[in-house]
């Protein structure tokens, strides 16, 4: 049963990684850019949700009830961070795009530093805590299995979001247009796909999902800090590579897998060295299967 609980814990963390990884992967798909600012958008989401929940001494929770307040925070963060993502693309990436890959990377690092320090300037350098009164804290027991309500909520919501995205991207024509744009921009344009629109959609949805993950992360651990973006960003990014960058189902799988590996690594190998193993796995995968676990091989033309 301990194993099952650990699996659940792993899946919970994994779903954070997966939601963030989706943003990395989608942006990489259309722009071939590792968006280093993505982790900080996740942190921003966490803080925005926190602010909404503590606003007016918990007015949202009092007005709409515990769950209503949570939903409000999640929605607020979803839209606000999504808009931040669109703004980021417009201000920092689009003007640099023509100059090549390296300046784009530096611009992304610049946005990351900017966001991280904006968060610090607004909310202060110290840890903040989601108050206990705005999130459910009780647990349920299924036989020997001990699960918190929050965990269940996170798992259900993440899976719903991922399924929705999976449906949009894999099953609709619009989703096919997104995938087509990632594969061959020019051909997609010929067929009538407005690449700018796709880019805006990606830069809204990717960060928005990260924002939701940020709020859920805050509700789960309760404690948030302005530097959390680096850490989660790096892990989620590893997950993206693990699955295969640019491929959306792969990012989900990579995230969940990483969460589970980490949990079991911490439990059965060493909690201090677990992150080292994570990165070692990353490097080994890149050496032997640079396309990730389920990424497709792309031939390089000379």
């Amino acid at each position: 049963m301990i194993i099952l609980e650990q699996l659940l814990n792993g899946l919970t963390i994994g779903s954070f990684y997966a939601l963030i990884a989706l943003g990395y992967s989608m942006v990489y798909g259309v722009m071939k850019l590792i968006n280093f600012a993505h982790g900080d958008l996740f942190a921003l989401g966490s803080y925005l949700g926190y602010s909404l929940l503590i606003w007016g001494a918990g007015a949202a929770s009092q007005r709409f009830g515990l769950w209503g307040g949570m939903i409000a925070a999640l929605l607020f963060s979803f839209f606000a961070v999504g808009c931040a993502g669109v703004l980021m693309e417009r201000v920092a990436y689009r003007p640099v795009q023509k100059s090549g890959r390296l300046p784009l990377v530096v611009s992304a690092l610049g946005v990351s530093i900017f966001l991280q320090n904006s968060i610090m300037a607004i909310w202060g350098p110290r840890y903040q805590a989601y108050p206990a009164s705005v999130v459910p804290t009780h647990a349920i027991h299924l036989g020997w299995l001990h699960v918190t309500i929050m965990q269940l909520f996170i798992l259900i919501l993440s899976f719903m979001l991922m399924l929705t995205l999976y449906y949009i991207v894999q099953k609709t024509t619009f989703g096919a247009a997104i995938r087509a744009t990632a594969l061959d921009r020019e051909m997609a344009t010929i067929l009538g796909v407005d690449v700018r629109k796709i880019t805006l959609f990606i830069f809204f949805l990717g960060p928005a999902l990260g924002g939701v993950a940020g709020v859920m992360n805050g509700m789960y651990y309760r404690q948030i800090s302005f530097v959390m973006g680096w850490n989660y960003g790096l892990k989620a990014f590893t997950a993206t590579i693990l699955g295969g960058i640019g491929n959306i189902p792969a990012a989900m799988l990579g995230g969940l897998l990483l969460g589970i590996v980490e949990m079991f690594g911490a439990a059965y190998i060493s909690s201090a060295w677990k992150d080292v193993f994570t990165f070692l796995i990353l490097i080994i995968i890149l050496i032997f299967r640079p396309t990730g676990l389920i990424g497709e091989k792309v031939a390089e033309k000379v």
Binding site: V91, S112, I113
Partner: peptide, 8 residues
């Protein structure tokens, strides 16, 4: 914060 903006 300024530094990040300056980079961009």
């Amino acid at each position: 914060l300024f530094f990040g903006g300056a980079l961009v």
